[in-house]
Amino acid sequence: MVAVRPAQASDLSAISALDARLTGTSKPEYWPERLAPGLHFLVAETGKGAFAGFIAGEVRAWEFGQPPAGWVFAIQIDPKLRLKGTGSALFEALVARFKAEGVTRVRTLVDRKDHLILSFFRAQGMVAGPSLQLDMELP
């Protein structure tokens, strides 16, 4: 059973290390910014108090013309602690916070080759959203 609580400055090193290990990219300046007021940054701990993973998100309005929605910006779970409901517990806790802010939709962006995270969000009930992401490399 995992417990979910708001992230604190003392969690940043574990968050940053897990993300860097799983994505191969270290973003030491990014994670402290997620602790700003009004954003949602949650961590999961095992029953023994060990760090198990985190989720980050916030409510954004009118960007790309879209009405307010909760955005999931990042979720990472320690691979040793996967398939134990940790990701679902973090997602549900974040969604509860979005609802408390009055939004009725949750959104995210996923690399279409990352089948693991795509399957995770699908299993939470998410489906393809109304927008198409477009992209080009600048010459």
Partner: peptide, 9 residues
């Protein structure tokens, strides 16, 4: 990607 992301479960 869509078909691969949806498990039978």
């Amino acid at each position: 990607a869509t078909l691969r992301s949806v498990s039978l479960e």
